[in-house]
Design a protein around this nucleic acid. Structure first.
Lengths: 156, 156
DNA sequence: CTACTTGCAAATGCTTTGCAGGAGA
DNA sequence: TCTCCTGCAAAGCATTTGCAAGTAG
């Protein structure tokens, strides 16, 4: 059920979306998509800088704005200190985040189809009375990642 | 099932928590809690400034840091541009957010107990294999609020 | 009097923008 | 060639901090 999309296909889709916005899929933009693709978790500007050292910060920010504008990238505000970026879910797959409150790491988890249909149903029931028209949802779980949980256990 | 907590009781609880951190419940801090209490939705620094004009920005930020440190306030990073703050859920009640992607408004919705137990069960199943120890979760729904949905409908 | 508070002004750090040169179609 | 792209340096803006004076216990 997991709709896998190949990296090649992702680049193709990103290019199409950029084109629709009169934008080109240049080396810098591709490098950023490459980083987001390979990282497997939301990337901060520092991750991007590390993964694409040839792209200056200011250009990276500009690219990210463009990529968001055409719906290829989504911003995830984690803690407020800085912004994280990830590929749009329709380019990868719908997933949720596990945020470790100790080390700050974010892990992606892909829910089962069953899981998602239940959530979708609940979201509908949650919004029914308010007149709110739901488009998407995000379920983030805060807690302790395996490593930090162990560390805490040990220090007791 | 909805555990209502009176404003008075909230102040009391906040004071206790501050005390435990060797902090005093001063006029400035009280003013901020008052704003968060009366606003009924996550407050930006501008909301706080408007609701508590006597508290300078820098002090407000400092208070918010303190209030977060003692677990009375929680930061909600909405869009990444700036931070929103709300009272800790154990001072009010657990709720979720409806974010309008058009006007940016955030509305709180309180889920039923049934709803929550299902979510909790799903979170457990989601984290079971990863060794992640879940502490809390947030389910945010993006979409169009009633007003914006209507506006969009009309413009077709 | 000792420790926590506050306000102001200055500093910080992420992010955006102006501008001038470069490149794709 | 016209439009989009890129880099650098400078600017913006939310948030933090140093410091000196204020206040509660």
């Amino acid at each position: 059920m997991t709709t896998e999309i190949s990296p090649l296909r992702v680049h193709e889709l990103v290019e199409i979306r950029l084109r629709q916005g009169q934008l080109r899929y240049t080396k810098g933009r591709r490098a950023i998509v490459e980083v987001l693709l390979s990282l497997g978790r939301p990337a901060g500007i520092s991750d991007i800088e590390r993964g694409a050292p040839d792209v200056p910060r200011s250009s990276a920010y500009r690219h990210l704005v463009d990529l968001q504008a055409v719906g290829a990238v989504r911003a995830v505000s984690a803690n407020g200190d800085f912004t994280l970026f990830e590929l749009s879910e329709d380019l990868t797959e719908h997933h949720h985040h596990l945020l470790c409150v100790v080390c700050g790491n974010i892990t992606d988890v892909t829910p089962s189809a069953d899981f998602e249909s239940v959530i979708a149903e609940m979201v509908r029931s949650l919004t029914r009375e308010t007149g709110f028209d739901p488009v998407s949802h995000s379920l983030d779980v805060s807690g302790h990642c395996a490593a930090c949980a162990e560390r805490i256990g040990n220090s007791l």
